[in-house]
Design a protein around this nucleic acid. Sequence first.
DNA 1: CGTTAGCACTCTAATCTTCCGAGTGCTAAA
DNA 2: TTTAGCACTCGGAAGATTAGAGTGCTAACG
Lengths: 352, 352
Amino acid sequence: MELSDRKKKILQAIIDDYIASAEPVGSSHILKNHDLGVSSATIRNEMAALEEAGYLEKPHTSAGRVPSYLGYRVYVDQLMNEYSLSVAEINQITSALRTRYLELRRVIDSISDIMSVLTDYTAIYTTPSATGITVSNIKLVPVDERSFVALVITSSGGVKNRTVRTSKTFEADVLEKLSNYLSYRFAGCDVGEFTPEVLLNEKKLIPVDEELIDAVFEFLTDLSNEAENVDVVMSGTTNIFKHPEFNSIDRTKDFLNFIKKDNSKIIKSLLSQTGDSTSVIIGNENPVLENKDISLVVSNYSLGGGLKGKLAIIGPTRMDYAKVISTLDYLTSCINEVTGNANLDERKKELD
Amino acid sequence: MELSDRKKKILQAIIDDYIASAEPVGSSHILKNHDLGVSSATIRNEMAALEEAGYLEKPHTSAGRVPSYLGYRVYVDQLMNEYSLSVAEINQITSALRTRYLELRRVIDSISDIMSVLTDYTAIYTTPSATGITVSNIKLVPVDERSFVALVITSSGGVKNRTVRTSKTFEADVLEKLSNYLSYRFAGCDVGEFTPEVLLNEKKLIPVDEELIDAVFEFLTDLSNEAENVDVVMSGTTNIFKHPEFNSIDRTKDFLNFIKKDNSKIIKSLLSQTGDSTSVIIGNENPVLENKDISLVVSNYSLGGGLKGKLAIIGPTRMDYAKVISTLDYLTSCINEVTGNANLDERKKELD
DNA sequence: CGTTAGCACTCTAATCTTCCGAGTGCTAAA
DNA sequence: TTTAGCACTCGGAAGATTAGAGTGCTAACG
């Protein structure tokens, strides 16, 4: 059903007001706050039609109307006004990005913090996934005569390390030779390729103490297994208290239990279901959100060098979608710009 | 004032019951659940005396008594019964420790998880602080012709790294020479010693491209600044919902706002105020907890090699202190045992 | 003198009642 | 098609009622 212009205006007015006030919106409110040039009775008729069509709901007879999930969907897709970040907000972002953004992993962490501050919702991100990342270098560095650190340096400049202690002492040059050989042998290999089979074959070819090789290879298999493991990290979980829906303990409990650590699998899969552009998941649209009154706005970030992840905002369905979407878009574009192909040190100097 | 035996028994009974039930305890309850051999009227008299002395409080005239902070203090110090971990609990701990405890940093993380599960409260730990840690090795590993990874390997087997991109290309052997020199020069230095002054002097002595040196030295100063930085990490924050005091939204809000990320400074300082043995902070005993009805049980862990930190449980003052204290003690002793001076790989084999 | 039964008194929290007002839907007129 | 008018609905706030748990005091008891 295609909505008439007037219906669209009324629907937008109702959702705008409801997002702002968290109170069911009545016909006379619309009359007062929006210049539609018709009486409250007409608005009432239109509201009844919009309810009939499934865009609005009544909490009870004598309350105003509240948007349904479908209503929010139409709002997000067609009705809402663009939100422009204020100069103050943009300043806040740039000044936060100015500091310490050299450490790739922390860029996204601080972005997520900023996001939760700017939007007053909870920010979620998945840690950069290393798919497609290749080995650049493998180092075994002695610490003392019976322990060393195994390091794998990846094409994206990431470092994985593990400390290994051995039962026998070993010579430093044995380690160095092994280092060189492994670097030579595995340079360019995908990090996900270290399967036990590959390594078992390899092991036969290397004339080094078995304990050493075993420890290093165990590390490599673990890495390989972890390669696609992403974590889910949150900021601003207590922001929910700023919104009136969370004046109820039950609602709060539900929300916090949903976003808690143990539940990260579900959240991960929810985030991974979104595509390459910023997308919005509203309430029951996804089965795992059934009856939770939760919405998400999900975006993608890239730290360069193949490190990608999801960055999202989660909150009540009554969310300021316009603001959240533009903040998120702006921030992910900042990340992509800052970490793109640019030389980070150069960029830093530019900013200073 | 020294309490009579009977008063002690009654106080203990009241606090035991209150911890178990979260309801103010009345004289007739004590009569029913504890065999004191006196009538409820006598218990009432004693309760009035205990209230007078400051160990108990009345929420209102017609309710039972509730322990005061002072009451809890006496209880923790003198009255409570030892709690012994059940076989099931111990099994849970050992089986959790069996897996993946090779990665030092993760040991404490999983211990903290276990702790929150076993106690049903929120676990907090500070990340291992690196005070007294010395440099074992410095490596600069090329990634491509204009970027390299700077690595500092410490005496405890920890690895700090940073990816550096340069504006000019550089030769691999320049990096290697610089690596070797820095390792030679700084081996054994305390990680906290890289002040700008020290490094400025050093810089003059090294005939290498300035950009390279600057980048590496900036990394070292940052490390030095971070050396004493500890983070505060939490597990099981939603456990609070298992306790009836958090049926109220205000109480919940207060608690969650207290333990939230932005507040980690205060928590850090609170934890650092405790000594070397397991200690209990009850409600108003510490000014920052004023009127928050929060208690902490704080313990120390050591991962070996000088890596130490605090491990704590935070929850309502009505906390099962006996259980929390013994769980905490048991777990920290596990950590110390597992990571002590023992050869980790050997230990792993023992456990398998 | 400590202990105890008995009893009046207190106060909360749960439940019920009342009542206000915001908002609706319908009808009839413009 | 729009609008004024009006009866009707219903939730929630405010007030009233009540039940019961617990106390403190008194007087009797061993």
